[in-house]
Design a protein around this nucleic acid. Structure first.
Lengths: 332, 332
DNA sequence: TTGATTTCTGTTATCGATAACAGCGCATAA
DNA sequence: TTATGCGCTGTTATCGATAACAGAAATCAA
């Protein structure tokens, strides 16, 4: 008991005793057992973060933002990689809960993640979703405005004269994919152009998916003049397919996508993108979660939609001779 | 007690009772408390993994490999990001130990990490180092053969006629940096060329560091004809500096580095690199650690050095008119 | 029928930290 | 002298799962 008092810096311990205890701790390499502490207080000071792909450079700042915010509040963050696999994601959720993390920050693998998340919510377990919403699930949420971003990217392409714009997206099982598709469609319709289902290519939103979808897009006759990839890795896959066909950006094909990634931007400084506030996504998500854990947030769920930035580079060329206008850049 | 028996699938429970218990578990959303289980058994079935930078694409497969191996053995992996900061690294180590992870897999931030790692070893706590060794620390270890890789990269440049080869590396506080510098030096001396300290640029081994070091290298007179960057991010920084000076690879400058990263390779298909078996680094490290946790490994420490692959692309041009020989590629 | 055995379920004690409280010694006040 | 308070340290009970064992009911053997 006295040892416990010393460790936790409580008052009521003689200075002499305190010194003796500290000496003993030093001599024995004693490390207090947080497992036991967590058991009695049911406070593990730990949050869980599940992302579909730690290897995706978009998630690096998300993780970083969440971690910093958690640390500042004296919480640590357990990071798990669901690999976009619903089964694995469910396993991790159960695992983290049984380890008594005090709350979960989840970037869901897909719409079906709701079956894993809903039981948590029903129990009143603190959960915050980031990056992707789940259908029919009234949960704290931090996302960026995908539809608006997609509209801006598409408008940008339209303003440069592009009419046949291919869109590479996922199999309609994420809110981000749906919203970006909606933005794409709205921009087309706003310009009085028809929405063509044959220009929408559904695939896995990674390098290989982008590669294959682009191959299909290039097989169209006439070939589209622009490609709007739903995220960075899909765009990289598109680059690969284009290069193999001897097509270069922006001369033969315009290419735009979501997510600005520093090292990709250096290597392909021509890519026009929508930049999401990834670090903010993570830190705001963690903040909402911490509030909920502390019981400071009411029963109502909070939905935060962050605005995005259009960064115009050189990847869009011009179809009808309309020149590139660098002043369109809205980069900060 | 009967509930415990049902959960753990022990025998000696009536079928009827078992069904009732399972129904109750379902109805109550009951999740067993691993904290309590860990307390009594002191088996948390958890390993810790500390890496200096989760955002570095090199570490993504390392993490993945370690995670897969841990999972297969019924362990989970807590991932922590030390950001190359010794203080943060030390904090995470203490944190994970007090959470009673059963072993630690550490990619150390730098040589000074030994002050955090040594006390663990003294206590007999299971630790395995990956990617980087620590001086005077006799610890299980999985690294790749940096010196040999650096020799091959340098030999490749020499064989193409390059003589003034700049080397971008860190401030001599990681084993990988030292070993790569040694390989570079040995290759030069093997070719009868002097080792020139003025061609070695010490910096932080990230994008900004590579950028600044390259600016310095380009200020030399005569300018080097080749740059050997110690890792992928440093090379990306070099690309940025080169482009700003209007220099392109390989026409004006050869560029080689360690680490092959898929999406970077797609965007810069000219980069000649040493490919480290990153996933193997993670999975072998986890395997050694699991053996040590299980007490299956003796007191002697095991040191595994993995061989690397030279992947020749087009980034090295030729100074003296020696043509590129594509058959030099040793890609699998 | 009675003791032995098997099958099943419940009790007690334990892991380590700590909340709540008990107890001891000493000092000051009445 | 006795009562009251304060400062310090130790005891007991607790968190939840489970090992070890105890006990109850049913079955079997003699």
């Amino acid at each position: 008991m006295t040892v416990s008092r010393v460790i936790n810096g409580r008052s009521g311990v003689d200075e002499e005793t305190q010194r003796k205890v500290e000496a003993a701790i030093e001599a024995l390499d004693y490390v207090p057992n947080r497992v036991a502490r967590g058991l009695i207080s049911s406070k593990t000071q730990t949050l869980g973060l599940i992302v579909p792909d730690v290897a995706n450079p978009f998630f690096a700042p998300v993780v970083h933002g969440a971690e910093m915010t958690a640390r500042k509040a004296g919480f640590r963050l357990l990071l798990c990689n669901s690999e976009g696999d619903l089964r694995l994601e469910k396993e991790y959720i159960e695992d983290l809960v049984s380890h008594r993390v005090e709350g979960l920050l989840i970037a869901p693998a897909g719409d079906q993640s709701r079956h894993s998340v809903f039981p948590l919510m029903r129990r009143g377990f603190p959960v915050v979703l980031i990056d992707r919403a789940l259908p029919d699930l009234d949960c704290d949420l931090v996302v960026s405005d995908s539809a608006a971003g997609a509209r801006r990217l598409t408008d940008h392409l339209l303003s440069l004269g592009h009419r046949d714009i291919a869109h590479l997206t996922d199999a309609d099982d994420t809110s981000t994919g749906r919203e970006r598709l909606r933005g794409y469609r709205e921009a087309l319709e706003g310009a009085g152009l028809p929405f063509r289902e044959d220009l929408v290519f559904r695939t896995t939103v990674d390098l290989i998916g982008g590669y294959r979808a682009t191959q299909q897009a290039l097989a169209l006759d006439p070939m589209p003049t622009a490609i709007f990839a739903v995220n960075n890795m899909t765009a990289v896959g598109a680059m690969k397919a284009l290069r193999e066909r001897g097509l270069s950006v922006p001369e033969h094909m315009a290419l735009v996508c979501f997510d600005d990634v520093e090292h990709l931007a250096v290597l392909s400084p021509f890519l026009t993108v929508i930049d999401q506030p990834a670090e903010t996504l993570g830190s705001l998500g963690a903040q909402l979660l911490l509030e909920r854990v502390a019981g400071k947030s009411g029963p109502r769920s909070r939905r935060i939609v962050l605005q995005t930035d259009l960064i115009v580079r050189l990847s869009c060329g011009s179809v009808s001779g309309v020149p590139l206008r660098p002043d369109q850049s809205e980069e900060a």
